[in-house]
Amino acid sequence: MQTLPHTAVTLAADLRTLGLSAGDAVLVHSSMRAVGFVAGGVQAVVEAFLDVLGPGGTLVVPTHTPTNSDPAGWRNPPVPATWWPVIRERSPGYDPARTPSRHMGVLPEVVRAWPGALRSTHPHVSFAALGARASVFVGDHPLAEGLGEGSPLGALYREHGKVLLLGCGYDRNTSLHLAECRQPRPAMTGYGAAVREPSGGSRWVTWTAPVADASDFARIGEAYEAGGEVRIGVVGSAEARLMAQRSVVDFATAALSERGLRPS
């Protein structure tokens, strides 16, 4: 049990000890339950990040909307085929300002709604960013590049950003999907989602992109960590892992290729 509540000040100190610095761009995957009790809750957590990153840094979070997808592929739970046309035609449609993230945790939702935050336009795998280079990371996000070179993940790679796993494992490390997309012949599949029109209506859009499969990510992450490239520490009550995104993506790209994974 915690002896005292964590605060924005103590969390900022933990982040600095871990290796996060002013001016960094960092993609954060998080479990607030693992962080423990924080005076001020998730607002204080965001303020701790902003304090550490400073005016030149950028906080990036996944704000995905996985339920905005083709109902024909839903399995947990499935819906009747007679519902599919209604869902496709009548869903309000993704809007960066209105549509909440789903299954990403509370931190991304708070960052998404924070004053000055920007969010990418992808209707299925959007990201939000807050800070000096926010537009660099989320300003352009083509449909077919959900997790590829043209996505915020690709921008983070080019900008030498970092990844922080805060109370969660490598299975949540979205950047490894960029490694999937870099395979010579990645398995491809079709996607669909509703998008809100400026008029207030919605339209159904479809695209083709590599299959996103995180089943090997834990194993790849453990192998990468064994090489000593990961800073491991405690932030609040959570075990945290900080790494260079470019380094872990390069490692995963080679690992997937050498093991013959993701055949087309």
Rank of each mutant, 00 (worst) to 15 (best):
D70P: 12
T174N: 10
G139W: 09
G105S: 02
H103I: 04
C168W: 13
V106M: 07
S120V: 02
K162A: 06
V60K: 07
G154Y: 00
E145G: 07
C181V: 12
G56P: 03
F137W: 04
P115M: 12
E89D: 13
S91Q: 07
G116I: 10
H64W: 13
M104K: 02
Y170W: 15
L118Y: 15
G148L: 08
L59Y: 05
A144Y: 15
C168K: 15
T67M: 15
E89K: 12
E159T: 04
R75T: 14
C168M: 11
D140L: 09
W84V: 04
H103D: 12
G169F: 00
W84S: 01
F137L: 13
V125T: 09
S175H: 15
V163C: 09
V163N: 09
P142T: 00
Y94V: 01
V163M: 12
R98F: 09
V138I: 06
V138L: 03
L130R: 06
A144M: 12
E109P: 02
W84P: 00
G150S: 02
G73L: 13
D171N: 14
E145M: 10
P123W: 14
W84F: 13
V61Y: 10
A117G: 01
T121H: 14
P108E: 03
R90N: 08
N76I: 08
G105E: 01
D171P: 11
V61N: 04
C168I: 15
P77T: 08
H124M: 10
P115G: 10
A128M: 10
S135A: 13
W84N: 03
Y157R: 02
E89Q: 13
R102I: 07
L176E: 05
L59R: 07
G150Y: 11
L143D: 04
N68C: 08
P78S: 08
T63N: 06
V106A: 04
L107T: 01
C181T: 11
G150H: 10
T65Q: 14
V163E: 04
R88H: 11
A129W: 04
R158L: 00
P115D: 12
P142A: 00
S120T: 05
S135D: 10
A117C: 10
P123Q: 09
H122R: 08
V86F: 14
Q183L: 13
N68I: 06
A72R: 15
I87Y: 15
W74H: 11
N68A: 12
S175Q: 12
E109Q: 11
G150V: 09
R182T: 11
V110W: 05
P78T: 05
P80C: 00
P108Q: 05
S135N: 06
R158M: 00
F137I: 02
T99Y: 11
M104W: 06
R88N: 07
G154V: 01
A179N: 00
R172G: 02
H103E: 13
P55D: 14
